[in-house]
Design a protein around this nucleic acid. Structure first.
Lengths: 334, 334
DNA sequence: CTGAAAGCGCTTACAG
DNA sequence: CTGAAAGCGCTTACAG
């Protein structure tokens, strides 16, 4: 079962390969109607399908971009991917998605693999653990957009949530509701991961602005599988928090599992608010108040910037860091 | 910024392109240590990265497979994708995921695109709307595995849940719990979609086996955005069902939204059981009883079969349809 | 142990 | 309006 190539079509239509190629690329400028028809018929008869790999080699462009997310388990990641895909589709680009699983080694492997596959550009939710690689890509002017995390000393376009605003919204909502002892839980910050750091800093700032003293015991950054233990400890302290802010969706789920396990009533026993909207927020008992990210707009922007960079190698942006505004979805968990 | 090619490396190392290529492909059989070192050093110095597109063209294999899911919004799809990815990774294959969004035209576009990109094989959750295309792939012996849905007259390996067993588990559990008026809701069956059909048929059979009469009003197959209305009607009937089986995760969410809206208490006012486990099942109030699919095993099998077919064009399977067994997760929603 | 040459399936600048 | 030729960056059978 040999594949049909452009030569076969050319032979069948009694023209040269060049002419067939012109036809395929819709460069009809000087092509006679008769020729067009003969070619289209030959293609039909043979069931010819162009080989994009060959075209890519010649054109040095694959019309494909790579997306490497730090952790695909966050609903946030999948929503952003959908948006990126939408925009790329419109412009005839394809995407290959990889999940670094929060491991810099995996991220490295994927970056190298995608570059070897000649993707035209990359959108990365960086683990932060491959500085040399990031830098070398930027030095080579490889089209690159970072997402959700800022990497120091690697100046390239970066799409971010306004994290300070997000946490501010959460803290102030809780304060408005009369809570004073407010805790925050995030996943680990042993590696410097921007949103978590910014959210914790923002949390402190927001409390200070409200003249509430910061209690270290109310701040917990810890591996996901330790969240429940962390919460247990926090609640066991002499003066436990009345409200907890979950730093992201997975953290929120761990918190909810624990409150369920020990039968806490939300918000009476413990108020809860989460950053990232979750699919079941409104179905939950009680419906969960969350801070939602504009995931679609963020993904869209990332794709747009990347495609610009690909199409115009000299493309210069005004800013490097694009901040997007969160919105509070008030329900009944605090 | 011209790309470094194998020629540059050859020049730098003072050997021929052939030798560099041998080195890259680890065919060291007759290569002197000195040569190896010179090459490895040249690669290092130049920061050479092989161009996989060129290799693919020559080798007529991209080590990439395509996965086209009918609808990525089902948690089921994403879980299966993860499993497929795991297996492929182990064997040095990459995957490109596409979402047909339940639209045959999109599916067609993606199949053609992926074939043009020279993927070595395809795993498809078929919409069922592209018979000619499916058939032509099978005729050409293009490596292909269908998933979740059976396509009539297109004999190829297909991975399926034992749907009858799944629904049987649900019906019998409900009957054991004392329910007699049992309803079922699925998304639309205007196009013939195997799991929905099999689940409805299985539902009827299970009722008959228990000598319960089938009430047409208790069976509702309808577009997702009409599920809430459908349930409303069903509950408004003279003798409304006491229990509802949700045909999949998205249907379940719609049902839960509605029960929440009109303040039904589960299971007192209405018992609920869902096919597909959902992330928040155990967090829900009350925790939701579900029928879980062995998503990981199913995805694994699909990948394994496809990779076999790719590696051994003459590969013949014993069976065509692989059935996997569901398991009930008993919680408290019925 | 290593190299020259052909070829994978396209595209494109150029000639006519 | 159309074709011959070169070339994209690799791999591989073969010669030496």
């Amino acid at each position: 079962m040999k594949a049909i190539t452009i030569s076969d079509v050319a032979k069948q239509a009694n023209v040269s390969k060049s002419t067939v190629s012109q036809y395929l690329n819709k460069r009809y400028d000087y092509m006679s109607e008769k020729t067009k028809e003969r070619i289209s018929q030959a293609i039909e008869e043979l069931g010819y399908q162009p080989n994009i790999v060959a075209r890519s080699l010649k054109q040095k462009s694959t019309s494909t971009i790579g997306v490497i997310v730090a952790n695909i388990l966050h609903a946030f990641s999948t929503q952003v991917i959908r948006a990126i895909e939408d925009i790329c589709n419109e412009q005839g680009f394809h995407i290959i998605v990889c999940n670094a699983d929060d491991q810099p080694e995996k991220e490295k492997k994927y970056i190298e693999m995608l570059i070897a596959k000649q993707v035209d550009g990359l959108i990365i939710f960086p683990t932060g653990g491959n500085m040399d690689l990031y830098k070398s890509m930027i030095k080579k002017k490889f089209p690159l957009v970072f997402f959700d995390r800022i990497v120091e000393d690697t100046p390239t376009s970066t799409i971010m949530l306004n994290n300070e605003k997000a946490i501010n919204l959460a803290v102030n909502h809780l304060i408005d509701k009369g809570y004073e002892r407010i805790g925050i839980m995030t996943t680990s910050i042993t590696r410097y991961i921007t949103p978590r750091i910014e959210r914790i800093n923002g949390y402190k700032k927001a409390l200070q602005e409200n003249n509430i003293q910061i209690n270290k015991n109310y701040i917990c950054s810890i591996e996901l599988n330790e969240i429940q233990n962390g919460l247990k400890e926090m609640l066991a302290s002499k003066s436990p928090p009345q409200a907890i802010i979950a730093g992201n969706d997975l953290t929120l789920m761990e918190i909810l599992k624990y409150t369920k396990e020990i039968n806490l009533t939300i918000p009476k026993d413990l108020a809860v608010i989460g950053i990232d909207d979750v699919s079941f927020a409104s179905l939950f008992t009680p419906p969960l108040t969350t801070i939602a990210q504009p995931t679609f707009e963020m993904g869209k922007k990332a794709a747009e910037i990347l495609l610009c960079k690909i199409k115009e190698p000299e493309f210069q942006e005004e800013t490097q860091i694009y901040r997007f505004e969160p919105a509070i979805k008030v329900r009944n968990s605090c």
